[in-house]
């Protein structure tokens, strides 16, 4: 029976709890050191399929700024972060943009949308 103990540093909130996750035969059996439910969920996931929120920018034309910040609506599998970034590098949008507007839907079939993080109004 394979038993592995992972030291996991929680990144859900700024408190930054550290704890241990025990995995036996591919299943999380015990979690220690985490102080909230979100942290427990994060730690359990981190040892099996780690995910991260992704933020970057896409090009925007017709606005006062050349770039629009975008954010994933949910965490993305860690090993697909750079694929998402490459996808977004090729994206260009037109002002006006409203905060929350979907910029890329279901990126790479991961089931995660990328949304605009701010308004960008039209500048003549």
């Amino acid at each position: 029976m394979a038993r592995v103990v992972h030291a996991i540093q929680c990144i859900v909130c700024p408190i930054g709890c550290g704890g241990e996750v025990t995995v036996e035969d591919g299943t999380v059996t015990t979690l220690t050191g985490f102080t909230c439910n979100k942290g427990l969920a994060y730690a359990a996931k981190e040892v099996v399929s780690p995910k991260r929120m992704v933020t970057t920018t896409v090009r925007v034309s017709g606005g006062g700024l050349p770039l629009l910040p975008v954010v994933s609506v949910a965490p993305v599998p860690k090993d697909r972060i750079f694929d998402c970034l490459n996808l977004l590098r090729g994206v260009s949008v037109m002002a006006p943009i409203a905060e929350g507007e979907i910029v890329v839907a279901d990126a790479l079939g991961l089931g995660v949308d990328f949304r605009a993080a701010r308004d960008i109004s039209v500048v003549q």
């Binding site: 090009r59 006062g64 700024l65 050349p66 590098r89 090729g90």
Partner: peptide, 11 residues
Amino acid sequence: RADIGAAEGIH
């Protein structure tokens, strides 16, 4: 930046 033309103006 990789995707931005060098002639782009800045704010």
